[in-house]
Design a protein around this nucleic acid. Structure first.
Lengths: 194, 194
DNA sequence: CGCAACCTACCTCCTAGTAGGTAGACTGTC
DNA sequence: GACAGTCTACCTACTAGGAGGTAGGTTGCG
């Protein structure tokens, strides 16, 4: 296959790479088309060719992010034996984002939520929903295989886990301190240990 | 005392009221001097009389917020008998903010952290530090009076509690669902029950 | 008077977005 | 194989509007 996959090497995708980083570091409202254009070495007008408006760019951003996250969850499901190991890998997914001095994209978009275009808002909620669904599945599995223990509905515990990890990222970033995140994650896991 | 406390009824304070609400709903970068001026019925130029720049306004915002939060913590300390009740009241402090469809100010500022003026950045960290210090005190007290139980250092658990509550607010807001926050808070408390 | 608290009238810079054009690669037809 | 038409990916040059901020004047009160 000599045909280059445009999706992986083309300008449109490189725009997303830059916009993704800027969003995760500064937030969706705190970078401009000019920032991307300068970094890419093209003009603002060319950006509008690829993404007619910032709303469309934003939607493409979340869609790709969610897809990749889903893939990562699939890989965890395939690679790891028990529910507890899956949960640890999930927390490490978040730690990895923080290691790059970024915040979870949907976490930062949640902070900006009321200012986002409607299309982006529903995608953010969908991201959280999917994560919680996956987590609830892992929790149910963990109760069955005996590697996890909790009281109440799996859905509620899943919400709580998601909240804790998003919050831990949020608070850890101003400190620039990964240990801070790890402490919260460890505490979380400890609370689910049989 | 016929002397009206300017700090409580004057324009400067009303500016802070509006800026505070706008910050907690939309973020510090997502409102303008014009927004405040329009709502207050004065001109932008007058705002600059009270707060020379947005950085100064922002600092005044955090300072007042932190002061009030500290007062609330003092009241909890005075009014409530045991550590567990204090912790519940602390979580309810957050729920109250969410009930007003707001996010914790320092939580939303943490999301915007890299874009904030340096003076505001250190105030945000100070807010978190003070909260964690207070929480660590309550946790130590709870271990002594037998109303709370946890493993590891009180400081680490305090970090974890703060993260969970901030995260629960962050995630609950897009859903406009207070129950979502309560579920996470309840889960948190359950994990600290002896 | 003197000062606090406002005002009008501006400025500069940055924002997303648009209009219209172009080089060059691709495609279909004779 | 050549030419016409079309498409992709960019460009220059521009717009309206909004951001924070400033200079200097006015008003009313102790």
């Amino acid at each position: 296959m000599a045909i280059r996959n445009r999706k992986e090497s083309g300008t449109a995708e490189r725009v997303l790479d830059i916009a993704e980083r800027l969003t995760q570091v500064r937030g969706f409202n705190n970078f401009s088309y000019a920032d991307i254009a300068t970094e890419l070495g093209i003009t603002k007008a060319s950006l509008h060719y690829h993404y007619p408006g910032k709303a469309e760019l934003g939607q493409a951003l979340i869609t790709r992010y969610t897809e990749r996250f889903d893939q990562a969850l699939d890989e965890i499901d395939r690679a790891l034996p028990d529910a507890r190991a899956k949960l640890e890998a999930y927390a490490d997914l978040y730690a990895g984002v923080l290691r790059n001095e970024r915040m979870c994209m949907c976490g930062i978009l949640a902070a900006e939520y009321p200012t986002l275009p409607a299309t982006m808002q529903s995608e953010v909620v969908r991201f959280f929903d999917e994560n919680q669904k996956w987590l609830a599945g892992v929790l149910t599995e963990g109760k069955a295989d005996g590697t996890l223990s909790y009281r109440g509905r799996a859905e509620d515990v899943a919400q709580s886990i998601l909240s804790t990890l998003e919050g831990a990222m949020l608070v850890a970033r101003p400190y620039g301190d990964l240990a801070r995140f790890d402490a919260a994650a460890k505490q979380l896991l400890a609370g689910l240990t049989p």
